[in-house]
């Protein structure tokens, strides 16, 4: 691995994205539209329903970057695998880490802008109650996005076509959404499901985000509750595991 190559990969991915204006616009605008829709459903009509936007906004802030980056990454890397450019890169002095970290850096940068816009909208315009520091919402959202990128890189190895890659979404992402505590508090689930939800990465991502908004600050490092840092650490651990698994699927030699 070398910083020169890693940065070259990241810069190239960003150049490709910049050229694809429509994708870029959707990456940045769609999360905001979905969050505005959520606010409209629950808070705009008077008395907030079912905990309202304050309860549902943070989980969605965690979910959206994860889902979007998972999809974008799995399709992009699949394309790189099938077009032969990955084989060419790996026949050059590129390390597997250069490819993975390059992608993670590029999509992490996009996720930072995406999350900053979404958080700004929720907090400044839609009036989301945030008891912890607002910047921490962005940090957690970026970690969630990079988690989506890491998992997307990994699953792209198991898809031969873009159709198959997209199908990994209902296979791997929707069950996590069901079990992350958005629909039913995790401790109210049947025992087995609760136990499963306790080890799924998205559960920690949602807990971290909700923690920043509700658990309050003050206690821990940087005015953020210790439990939030703990959840974030688990998410980061999943990112590293995903990247390592992804590295195992990048092969210099194929049959």
């Amino acid at each position: 691995m070398s910083p020169r190559i890693t940065l070259a990969v990241a810069a190239r991915v960003l150049t490709q994205l910049r050229r694809d204006r429509r994708t870029l616009a959707m990456l940045l605008v769609l999360p905001c539209l979905v969050l505005a829709l959520l606010w409209w459903m629950f808070d705009a009509g008077g008395a907030p329903l079912a905990g309202g936007f304050d309860a549902l906004g943070p989980p969605l802030l965690a979910l959206i970057p994860f889902i979007v980056m998972f999809l974008v990454t799995s399709v992009t890397t699949l394309r790189e695998r099938s077009s032969g450019t990955l084989e060419r890169l790996l026949a050059m002095p590129t390390g597997k880490g250069d490819v993975l970290v390059g992608y993670a850096l590029a999509f992490g940068a996009v996720a930072t802008v995406q999350s900053a816009l979404a958080v700004l909208l929720c907090w400044a315009v839609l009036g989301l109650a945030v008891s912890g520091p607002v910047w921490m919402l962005v940090v957690v959202a970026v970690a969630d996005a990079v988690l989506g990128t890491a998992l997307g890189l990994f699953v792209s190895a198991f898809a031969r076509t873009e159709f198959q890659a997209v199908q990994f979404m209902p296979a791997l992402v929707i069950p996590q959404i069901l079990l992350c505590g958005l629909f039913l508090p995790r401790d109210a689930m049947p025992g087995v499901l609760g136990a499963i939800s306790d080890v799924l990465p998205l559960s920690f991502a949602v807990d971290a985000m909700s923690g920043v908004s509700t658990a309050g600050g003050g206690a821990g490092l940087g005015g953020v509750a210790g439990s939030v840092w703990g959840d974030l650490a688990v998410v980061v651990a999943f990112v590293l595991a995903g990247l390592l698994l992804g590295a195992a699927t990048l092969r210099r030699r194929t049959a």
Partner: peptide, 25 residues
């Protein structure tokens, strides 16, 4: 090494492709 199907990035310009692979090398 030149593969049978051209292994370059379709969504980059000619110069960008060469600059990228040049940086890798």
């Amino acid at each position: 090494y030149v593969t049978q199907a051209p292994s370059v990035y379709d969504d980059l310009t000619v110069a960008e492709n060469l600059r990228f692979f040049g940086r890798v090398l």
